[in-house]
């Protein structure tokens, strides 16, 4: 059988001109959307969580390095990496609780922003060990910490 048109050997795989192929721009878009849907629905939750852990760890390291010398809680919490952790939403809650269990840190704004909760007693405001304990107890009550 003879095929008419561009042979495989003649195609530069890096610079394919889509107009000269049989794939239209529309079908290319559909392919991209299909790939995204498959990733969204078929990748196991455990792998999604694992990706979140990596993302959280990288953002946390960046945030810690950039804000360790700051006193301003506003500056600490408005750091772009911290804001991205808040943007991860509820999936970040067990990651934050696990991090603060190992090493207390300024996770209170993030937890309050994500959960809408505030388990810290007024008399404990500013006392990092007591604030941390309040959130860890909340994590146990909510089933985030076994």
């Amino acid at each position: 059988m003879t095929y008419v048109g561009t042979t495989f050997a003649e195609v530069d795989p890096v610079n394919i001109d889509i107009k000269n192929t049989a794939v239209s721009e529309e079908s290319s878009l559909i392919q991209d959307e299909y790939r995204r849907s498959v990733e969204h629905y078929l990748i196991p939750f455990s792998r999604q969580w694992s990706n979140s852990l990596i993302r959280f760890s990288m953002l946390r390291a960046e945030w810690e390095a950039d804000t360790a010398h700051l006193s301003s809680v506003t500056e600490i919490a408005m750091h772009p990496a911290y804001q991205q952790i808040i943007g991860m939403g509820p999936i970040a809650i067990p990651l934050i609780l696990s991090a603060m269990k190992k090493k207390p840190d300024h996770w209170f704004w993030a937890l309050r922003s994500i959960t809408g909760e505030d388990p810290i007693l007024n008399e404990n405001r500013g006392q990092i060990p007591q604030m941390t304990k309040a959130w860890l107890n909340w994590g146990v009550e909510q089933g985030y910490i076994v």
Binding site: S71, S72, V73, T74, A77, P104, D105, H106, F108, W109, R112, D118, I120, R125, G126, Q127, I128, P129, M131
Partner: peptide
């Protein structure tokens, strides 16, 4: 991380002082 400069200057070494809008500190 138990206290900050604002507390330390005031002689307090077990609290983090800051007038944050979330009223956490």
């Amino acid at each position: 991380a138990e206290y900050n400069c604002i507390a330390w200057a005031a002689g307090d070494h077990d609290k983090w002082w800051w007038p944050d809008q979330q009223n956490q500190y």
